[in-house]
């Protein structure tokens, strides 16, 4: 464990909590892509199946449970409790355009051809594109609530910090997981234009609105 990974996990947890609080407090999931949240719940479900087979540490187990719970509560709030407030017509990204290539690739490129490993690989590839429906929705509506931009900032920051963690682990433990690294870099690249808008607009107190 290193500081980049701890900060990354905290950033990830913070993002998830910001979103939960936003939906719960405002009793609305306007501007939030329910599809992205479904993909994140799927990412955690397929990645954390080893929760019952491999014990890494208390921290690892606790965080996995928290992430799983928060993901499903968020999906439940969007499609259950506050479904009347979800603008599903703007949340129109075709999930099959993501799920089909990700599934195919996880069978082609993996560390070993076992069920758990393929599901883990699937979750890694899926996570790198899971935010696309949300970014697509913002590009369609042309704007995002400030609290949603903070959610996206910490969500993007978490994988950027993981890249620092992988560089650190490569130099200190000669540990290197090519699938996670390549996916993580792709995932972070998808946030770059958002990071630019966040820094140039939101941090200057303006509302995030796309030109």
């Amino acid at each position: 464990m290193n500081v980049f990974r701890i900060l990354g996990d905290i950033s990830h947890l913070l993002a998830i909590i910001i979103l939960l609080v936003k939906i719960w407090k405002s009793k609305s999931c306007a501007g939030i892509s329910g599809k992205s949240q479904i993909l994140f719940a799927l990412v955690f479900t397929t990645r954390y199946l080893d929760l019952f087979t491999t014990f890494i540490s208390i921290y690892n187990t606790v965080m996995k449970v928290i992430f799983l719970l928060c993901a499903y509560i968020t999906v439940y709030m969007i499609y259950g409790k506050f479904r009347k407030t979800s603008d599903s017509e703007n949340d129109s990204f075709r999930l099959e355009f993501l799920l089909v290539p990700v599934t195919g690739l996880s069978f082609l490129e993996n560390h070993n051809f076992t069920a758990l490993e393929i599901l883990w690989t699937f979750s890694i590839y899926l996570e790198s594109v899971a935010i696309l429906p949300q970014l697509f929705m913002i590009s369609k509506t042309g704007e995002a609530e400030t609290i949603t931009t903070h959610y996206l900032f910490f969500l993007g920051l978490y994988r950027a910090l993981y890249i620092a963690n992988w560089i650190w682990r490569y130099h200190t433990e000669n540990f290197y997981d090519q699938i996670a690294v390549v996916s993580g870099v792709v995932q972070t690249i998808f946030y770059c234009d958002f990071f630019y808008l966040y820094v140039t607009k939101v941090l200057k107190g303006k509302k995030l609105s796309l030109p």
């Binding site: 996990d9 990830h12 965080m63 992430f67 963690n165 000669n174 540990f175 997981d177």
Partner: peptide, 10 residues
């Protein structure tokens, strides 16, 4: 490259 047999990251 030392690939991860055990996935110890979240």
């Amino acid at each position: 490259s030392v690939e991860s047999a055990k996935h110890d990251e979240l």
